[in-house]
Amino acid sequence: MTTGVQGPAVRVQSLEKSYRELHVLRGVDFDIARGAIFALLGSNGAGKTTIVNILSTLLRADAGMVSVNGFDVATQAAEVRASISLAGQFAAVDEILSGRENLVLVARLRHLKDPGKIADGLLERFALAAAARRRVSTYSGGMRRRLDIAMSLIGNPPVILLDEPTSGLDPEGRLEVWQAVRELAGQGRTVLLTTQALDEAEQLADRIAILHEGRITVNGTLAELRALLPPAKVEYVEKQPSLEDVFLAIVRGGSPGGSDGADTAAGTGR
C-alpha cells in the first residue's frame, strides 16, 4: 500500500533517548535493507523495546533521525503507521473476543475490504481455524502468539516489528513463530526482531546487531560476527541429542502434523 519508496526499510541515525536521568540510547545507528530479517540483541533493559517503540511512533526520540519505509517517524507518523505492523513483547490480543473477532477488528481498523475473509485466511494459515470462535482467554501461549503475529500481518505492511516474539513460549511454540517469521521474509517483508535468545538470532536473522550500553556495538552477518573471534578449532565431541530434541520427539510422538492438535488440547486446559 505504501511501498515504492526508495532507500532502506529502516534507517536509524544518532538516535538518543533518556528516561529522566537514565540515558538508555546514546547514539544508535543502523539500517535495515528491504526484505531482510534484522535481529537486535541485547540484555534486559538495554533499550530494545525503546527502539521498537520509537520506530512504531509510540515514543518520541530525544535526538537523531529515524525513518521507516522512507518516512520520518517524527514528521510523517501517519505514513509510518501505515507502513508498519507491531507485535509487542506481550501478545497484545483481546482476551474477551474470539480469535476471529480479533483479526476482524484489526482488519476493520486498517480500513480493509472484506475483513471476514481476511480473518478466515489468516486463521487457516496460522492453524487457528479450529479455535476461531473460542475466546482468546482459552488459548495456549503459542496460539496467542500465532494470533498476535497473524494480527500484525493484516494489511500487508512492508515493515514488521516483532519485540521478543518468542519470550515465554515452549520450544514448539518457538518453532512455529520462527516458521512464521521466515515466511514473512520470504514474501519480501522487512522484519526487525528483538530477542535475548542468541540461537533465535542465529536461526533467523540475515543481520544481527548487538545493543550494549546505549549503542550498537556490533552489526553484521552471523559469519562476520563469528569472524570477530579467533578462528574455530576442530574438536571431536560425541553428538548427544539435546534436551530440546528429546522434548520435541516425545511431544510430537511421531506424527509431524500433530502439533496443532496438541496445542488446541493444551489450550482448553488453561
Partner: peptide
C-alpha cells in the same frame, strides 16, 4: 497493561 492499547496506537487509525 495488555499492550492492546499500543497495538491500536501503532495502527493507521
Amino acid at each position: 497493561q495488555g499492550g492492546i492499547f499500543e497495538r491500536f496506537q501503532s495502527l493507521p487509525i
